[in-house]
């Protein structure tokens, strides 16, 4: 018998085998898509819906005896006022890289409160202050837990927050404005049509802009600073948030300015205090009256905010009635 008929399929088998042992290709590597973040309520939110009809600005009227109340005496006994502040909001509260100190409009007010508690001049007030840098989310919990005496961290007074903490009278009438490029040709709210305006996601700033200029294109970011990065990267034509925050951002960018318009919303800033410490609130309100009356408020405003905002702002008139 000839083996030739066998060799042919054998050769084919060998060829198939060689093919089989050839290069093995793998499926392309794939990056799994990120799981969507669950948006929890944050937990522990016990506030009730309410309406900001102006009554939220009413605080506790100053009383002379508040200076010797248990709330204030406890701070004196400790030897320092513990204040919750920011450290990354230029002009309001930010670290001066040259001195290492946290300085700004909010910090001047903290020093004034401490000076009044310990009976020293304003300039020495900082010696009696322990600044505790807190995040925005910690503003109310830190007061509720008692880890700070006051919170002076560009905090808007509203009726919802009154359910969590107490507030002083308004110490600065902030409001939403828009930051734009100096050479962008944007002079008014009307010019924002078809412009990309960035605001932190989850805030009402974008809605406010769209109500006033429906043709503006909303852009969102994690926070105000991220909006500023988008603006500097050309991914947004403007940033909209509190004018005080915008002033701080504009101060760090010579090609940015805060648009000189009416405030789109009112964001009245107040000093936060534990809801049970109403005597401390009364004391702080007394300090605020003196702070405005003797010109320290205007001096602080002229130092920190006016150079960038470019407008004169009158100190708010306190409202009491609680």
């Amino acid at each position: 018998m000839s083996t030739r008929p066998i060799l042919r399929p054998a050769a084919a088998l060998l060829a198939a085998a060689l093919l089989l042992t050839g290069c093995a290709g793998y499926d392309a590597t794939v990056v799994p898509s990120a799981a969507p973040e669950t948006s929890g309520s944050g937990g522990g939110d016990t506030t009730e819906p309410c309406e900001n009809d102006g009554s939220q600005l009413a605080s506790y009227a100053p009383r002379a005896e508040a200076a010797n109340s248990a709330d204030v005496e406890a701070i004196r006994a400790r030897g320092r006022l513990v204040a919750g502040v920011a450290a990354d909001t230029e002009l309001l509260a930010a670290r001066d890289a040259r001195t290492g100190e946290i300085v700004g409009f909010d910090i001047d007010l903290v020093d004034a409160i401490a000076a009044a508690i310990f009976g020293v001049p304003q300039k020495q007030g900082s010696k009696y202050v322990e600044l505790k840098v807190i995040t925005a989310a910690e503003r109310f919990t830190s007061l509720q837990e008692g880890s700070v005496d006051v919170v002076v961290r560009n905090t808007t007074i509203n009726c919802t927050r009154w359910q969590l903490v107490a507030f002083s009278a308004e110490y600065y009438p902030a409001g939403q404005k828009v930051l734009v490029g100096t050479d962008a040709g944007i002079e008014s709210i009307e010019d924002l049509a078809d412009k990309r305006i960035c605001a932190p996601s989850g805030t009402t700033s974008i809605e406010n802009i769209q109500q006033i200029q429906p043709d503006a294109v909303p852009v969102t970011a994690g926070d105000n600073s991220e909006c500023m990065i988008k603006f500097q990267a050309g991914e947004a034509d403007g940033v909209s948030t509190d004018d005080t925050v915008l002033a701080g951002l504009a101060a760090q960018d010579p090609y940015a300015e805060v648009l000189d318009t009416e405030q789109l919303t009112a964001e009245p800033y107040g000093v936060g205090v534990n809801a049970q410490q109403t005597d401390l609130v009364r004391f702080v309100n007394g300090v605020l009256e003196d702070y405005v009356a003797d010109g320290r408020w205007k001096q602080s405003y002229d130092t920190w905010l006016r150079p960038t905002l470019g407008v004169d702002v009158a100190p708010p008139t306190p409202v009491y009635g609680r």
Binding site: E90, A94, R95, R98, S225, E226, I229, G248, Q252
Partner: peptide, 12 residues
């Protein structure tokens, strides 16, 4: 340049 916005860039 000692600008606070630097922190945002580092976080980014």
């Amino acid at each position: 340049q000692q600008l606070v916005i630097a922190i945002a860039y580092l976080n980014q």
